[in-house]
């Protein structure tokens, strides 16, 4: 059974059809790439999947239940984690606090423990701190736990976003241009990291990326979006040779 199933999704802003008739099915453990020219509606799809936008038409199913129209935080709690194209960290907080925040529901303790600082409060806090630290270790950020997030170099901010998304224990991870702004060396490291994360946590991943070499190496299946519509779908090999894709990317390199 599909982990994520999207049926005939449509959304327009004013007169602009951002997404129209979008379909997608992802099986557990798959790694799918979503590509397309700027303004093709990729991020809009992400925003609908995560509940930031409500679609005008279509339905979204996740893990067997319909999530169309659910609030953003509820969708996250059902197991969809995401990162943002234009990095949205909690800038003034430390790296560790950033990850702790994402651990909300799993480590939730009641108001009684909060107000009276019971023993459970300390136990829970300890547990949250350890868990958050372990996420940082996975992404090689543990040494920076006490630094203020906005002071991290760009590449580490991107990694922190992934760590933060992982702290919510997602089943499906949505990565919005994880390699944006990275140099080739960093991109290669990111590629290995994503592959490893997927194995380690048996994650299903959907990613938006402009870096074609990364997408082609990483993804098993690729969807190409243009003007809000899927114009091609298939293996990296099929996409590379698809004439419609080449046309959409006219002038851009597809290799």
């Amino acid at each position: 059974m599909a982990l994520l199933k999207v049926e005939d999704l449509s959304l327009s802003f004013g007169g602009l059809r951002a997404v129209s008739g979008f379909n997608l099915e992802i099986k557990p453990g798959e790694l799918v790439g979503l590509i397309g020219p700027n303004g093709a509606g990729k991020t809009t799809v992400f925003n609908i999947l995560t509940g930031f936008y409500q679609p005008q038409e279509g339905r979204v199913f996740f893990d067997g239940t319909e999530i169309t129209g659910l609030g953003c935080h509820r969708i996250n709690r059902l197991g969809i984690g995401r990162t943002f194209q234009n990095i949205r960290l909690f800038n003034e907080l430390t790296v560790l606090e950033n990850v702790k925040i994402a651990y909300q529901y799993a480590g939730g303790y009641s108001w009684r423990h909060t107000i009276f600082r019971t023993g459970s409060y300390r136990r829970y806090e300890q547990e949250i701190a350890e868990w958050a630290l372990s996420r940082l270790e996975i992404l090689d950020l543990a040494g920076k736990a006490e630094e203020i997030a906005k002071n991290l170099p760009y590449g580490e901010q991107r990694r922190l976003e992934i760590a933060r998304a992982l702290a919510g224990r997602p089943k499906l991870l949505l990565l919005d241009e994880p390699a944006a702004g990275m140099n080739p060396q960093e991109t290669m490291e990111l590629l290995e990291l994503i592959q490893w994360l997927r194995q380690e946590f048996s994650l299903t991943i959907l990613l938006i990326e402009h870096d074609m070499s990364l997408v082609m190496k990483l993804c098993e299946r690729i969807l190409v979006l243009d003007y809000g519509m899927t114009i091609a779908e298939g293996s990296p090999e099929e996409i590379r040779n698809n004439p419609r894709v080449i046309e959409a990317y006219l002038g851009e390199e597809v290799s």
């Binding site: 995401r82 909690f90 800038n91």
Partner: peptide, 25 residues
């Protein structure tokens, strides 16, 4: 200084990211 407080601070820092982290803003 609890996870409730952290949720509130997260809203101050970035409401959209907070919502994406599962916080009922």
């Amino acid at each position: 200084h609890s996870n409730h407080g952290r949720a509130m601070v997260a809203i101050r820092e970035d409401e959209i990211a907070a919502e994406a982290m599962g916080i009922n803003t």
